[in-house]
Design a protein around this nucleic acid. Structure first.
Length: 571
DNA sequence: GAGTTTGAAACT
DNA sequence: CAGTTTCAAACTC
């Protein structure tokens, strides 16, 4: 076998290697500036060599890149020519991280940062002078490895050096980190499940075909990063939002069987959607993506770039790239039925609406109250204290009016929310039988104002929730419908508006499904995704219009199912 | 622990 | 640049 082939070369004519070249290989500049190979960084390098050889733990995972970077692990390595941002100290090369869960760490370190033994290779045919060898690839000498006929040591420095050179000749970046990341991609990004992780990415990208990029065969997965547009993998499942991937992480990894099963199942495609909770979107297969998934439209497209076996459809690649620029691949994201209905901005908007409502209520009520006060002329000007948290205050209720009532009692609605939780209670809201006599605890009219205010606010909120529920139901039904006729036009109804890439994704349910017609209720028009949901939940225009709330709010306000399809344009 | 699978590296 | 071979890690049994 190859034994001879290369083996013969090594140890290459050692003589050829003059003393000069004897500078330990580590002195070489692997950084890609191959030209500099011989540089003069004897300092660190030499020391390293000397020290590291016998000593285990060569801390520097990628010592090689040293030329400019201090050997310390944490130090970022000078950006490669291609400059992809900061390079992690990650030795992504071969020195593969122990567990997929953890960001690759320097060879000498454990998760907690405590020193650890460097990984030992088991090379038999490469003499540890090729990148196949983890040690060699990481720029360290073999030490305590199980390799056979190893030349990756001081004794064979000449040969080693030769190997390094030839390797660099082939690929100037051979010893450079494969993973690039943004400054934020700190080291233990990992598992934010699709979060930080994406900050880093494989420079070259992987080319996995069968592992679904969910096994350590995959360099990306191994480094615990998502596949990026750089990858040319097939049937990749290592993308943000990948159910499979998420299940792996959520199920907490490698150790548990579930993980393995999921991974395998997912990879083989055997499980189809079943493996995952609900609305399992059909698994993607190489060339064809079933566009069942709403995400499809947008996000899916991202994925396509890759899923489609990487590349084929060149057109797609772009999309993905865009997504990742900073965050990494943006691919299909699994979300609950309400995922797109309730969005952060919607929540904000809702808050605004509620505030507005509260404000209005306060205004009205206080007016009343003032009127009463005049009569009673209660000098209780003690307007002090703290109902700081009081919604009323937030809403803009003038303190002046707000008088103390420290022991402010809770309104029936509030009590209901706090103690009862029974929907009915909420529904009944204002109804008298709600019991808890608010008045009973009300010192003077003030509390009543609050109570009224709460009532109004809570009622609004209740309405919103109901609408959300409705939306969810509609969506659900659509979902099921769309599933039934996957092939049918429904899918085709891809939303017209380009929209935000991320936005669209919803779990299995193609948002597309919801066509205005069907959803007459809420969904306005194409802008659907954004629209429906909470926003609609918000109040009715009529009530809020006056308020000076933010644009969002206003938009929401419009949402009443019926009338104004105007909906949230803003959103 | 042996055998198989996988994908990067090396080679053609 | 594409296809094939080699290699060692990852994985399975």
């Amino acid at each position: 076998m190859g034994e001879g082939e290369e083996g013969d070369k090594f140890p290459p004519k050692t003589d050829e290697v003059t003393q000069e070249s004897m500078k330990s290989a580590r002195q070489l500049d692997f950084t890609g500036g191959s030209s500099d190979v011989e540089h003069s960084h004897s300092n660190q390098a030499s020391s390293m060599a000397a020290a590291s050889i016998p000593s285990p733990v060569v801390t520097v995972t990628r010592p090689i890149i040293t030329s400019q970077a201090p050997p310390t692990v944490a130090t970022p390595i000078p950006p490669p020519p291609q400059s992809q941002g900061i390079i992690l100290h990650v030795p992504i090369r071969h020195p593969r991280p122990e567990s997929p869960n953890s960001m690759p760490r320097p060879a000498g370190e454990t998760r907690d940062g405590t020193p650890q033994k460097k990984k030992q290779c088991n090379c038999k045919h490469s003499r540890c002078l090729k990148l196949y060898c983890e040690c060699f690839a990481s720029g360290t000498y073999c030490d305590g490895c199980n390799c056979v006929n190893c030349f990756n040591n001081v004794e064979n420095e000449p040969a080693r050096r030769q190997a390094v050179e030839s390797t660099l000749e082939r690929n100037p970046n051979a010893f450079r980190p494969k993973i690039a990341a943004s400054p934020h991609g700190g080291r233990d990004n990992r598992e934010e499940v699709g979060d930080v992780v994406m900050l880093a990415r494989h420079n070259k990208g992987c080319h996995c075909k069968k592992s679904g990029c969910l096994k350590k065969y995959c360099e990306c997965f191994q480094a615990n990063i998502l596949c990026s547009e750089n990858c040319k993998c097939l049937d990749c499942k290592n993308f943000e939002g990948s159910e499979v991937r998420q299940s792996l992480f959520h199920g907490e990894h490698s150790h548990n069987l579930a993980y393995l099963q999921h991974a395998n199942a997912a990879i083989t495609g055997a499980i189809g959607s079943s493996g995952f909770a609900s609305a399992p979107p059909p698994k993607r297969r190489k060339g064809q993506e079933i566009f069942f998934n709403q995400g499809t439209k947008d996000s899916s497209t991202h994925r396509l770039g890759q899923a489609n076996n990487g590349r084929t459809t060149s057109s797609q690649t772009g999309s993905r790239a865009g997504g990742n620029a900073s965050l990494g691949p943006s691919k299909v994201v699994y979300k609950s039925l309400l995922a797109n209905i309730i969005k952060p901005m919607d929540v904000k908007a809702l808050c605004s609406v509620l505030v507005a409502v509260a404000g209005e209520a306060a205004k009205t009520l206080t007016e009343k109250r003032l009127a009463n006060q005049k009569e009673t002329s209660v000098a209780s000007s003690v307007q002090d204290q703290g109902h700081v948290n009081n919604k009323a205050e937030k809403s803009g209720l003038e303190d002046s009016n707000a008088d103390g009532s420290k022991g402010r009692s809770l309104s029936p609605e509030t009590l209901a929310l706090m103690c009862d939780e029974r929907d009915t209670m909420l529904m009944v809201a204002a109804s008298p039988n709600c019991s808890v006599e608010p008045t009973s605890q009300l010192p003077n009219g003030q509390d009543q104002v609050y109570a009224e205010q709460e009532k109004v606010v809570l009622t609004k909120f209740r309405d919103c929730l109901n609408r959300i529920i409705s939306c969810g139901e509609v969506k659900e039904s659509n979902c099921s419908m769309s599933r039934m006729d996957l092939d049918t036009p429904v899918q085709t109804t891809v939303r017209i508006d380009p929209v935000v890439q991320q936005a669209p994704v919803a779990n299995g349910v193609s948002q597309t499904a919801k066509q205005p017609s069907q959803l007459n209720t809420t969904t306005p028009n194409t802008s659907s995704q954004t629209a429906n949901g909470v926003s609609q939940t918000a109040k009715q225009p009529s009530q809020l219009t006056t308020t000076t709330t933010t644009p969002n709010t206003s938009s929401q306000t419009h949402l009443h199912k019926t009338p104004a399809l105007s909906e949230k344009k803003d959103l």
